[in-house]
Design a protein around this nucleic acid. Sequence first.
DNA 1: TACTATATAGTAGTCTATCCTATTTGTTCG
DNA 2: CGAACAAATAGGATAGACTACTATATAGTA
Lengths: 155, 155
Amino acid sequence: MLGEKGNSKSSEMQKKMGDFVAKCRQNGLKITPQRMAVYRALLESKEHPSAEMIFRTVKEVFPSVSLDTVNRTLLTLDEIGVAFIVEGSGDSKRYDANLGDHQHFKCVKCKRIVDFHHKPFDNIKVPKSIGENFIVLRKTVYIEGICDLCAKKQN
Amino acid sequence: MLGEKGNSKSSEMQKKMGDFVAKCRQNGLKITPQRMAVYRALLESKEHPSAEMIFRTVKEVFPSVSLDTVNRTLLTLDEIGVAFIVEGSGDSKRYDANLGDHQHFKCVKCKRIVDFHHKPFDNIKVPKSIGENFIVLRKTVYIEGICDLCAKKQN
DNA sequence: TACTATATAGTAGTCTATCCTATTTGTTCG
DNA sequence: CGAACAAATAGGATAGACTACTATATAGTA
Ligand SMILES: [Mn+2]
Ligand SMILES: [Mn+2]
Ligand SMILES: [Zn+2]
Ligand SMILES: [Zn+2]
């Protein structure tokens, strides 16, 4: 049972890594170990990590990796559409490689980003005034406030 | 005609400044000329300015004002609820003192923030999983992409 | 007017992200 | 395979956006 779960998870990961390789080739990008490691670290994290967080993770396997490479790679992931920068209120960039339908709640105190999925928020219809004049790349419902952990602290 | 428009606009501004003074008193905040100038500058701008933009504007009237004061004041405006930080994808903070129902489109190239108002996007119903566990302070529909001006440049 | 807590100016420091350049490496093609 | 070349990286410098610190100034008040 546990073994099977582990295998299915690992094969799912392998599929995603394979798709990523294909996507890189489509975009004329080289398959470098650093690029792979950054994407894998992002995929495996559930906390919408910053570049610095990814940097620390990748460094464990790749001690000589530079922060610049991590930053550049994360921007590339966004550009080719395999990840995106999570919306927020002016804090440092946070990334997400989960392209499935979902939305985010962000805590203004601890900056934690919590996934949730509310079907009515998928497929937002952009009004004509925007859709006809601008190229829409991303649309979502954004909710921010104070998370349970931070609310407790305040009392 | 022009005179009347000017007067009505100026009296509307005066009302908002009066409300702001009241709000400061409610929150035990002193009425300082710097604080007034920052709030006025934000009210008069339609471009969702950054702290730096506000700083430059306030400096014209108040040459000795410091950037730190502007930053602190803008955060205070957010805290007491007379303004807020516009949502975005990891760029520098941008502020808005327009509390009326509206939403934003942000250009990922030039960082321009465009107001729009689509009634179905007002009064978003927060799902229970969020509303029951977290304190919601702000909720909105966020749209980003490439604006008309930047789209032209690319061709 | 005098007192006190708050706010400010000026500056130093921190954190994030980007730029620069010499070197390395993935990919292509013979 | 084994060059050849363009793309990518490491490491350090630089820039930009806040944030912290501290001595001084000032708004609110009694
Ligand atoms: Mn997510
Ligand atoms: Mn606005
Ligand atoms: Zn929190
Ligand atoms: Zn633009």
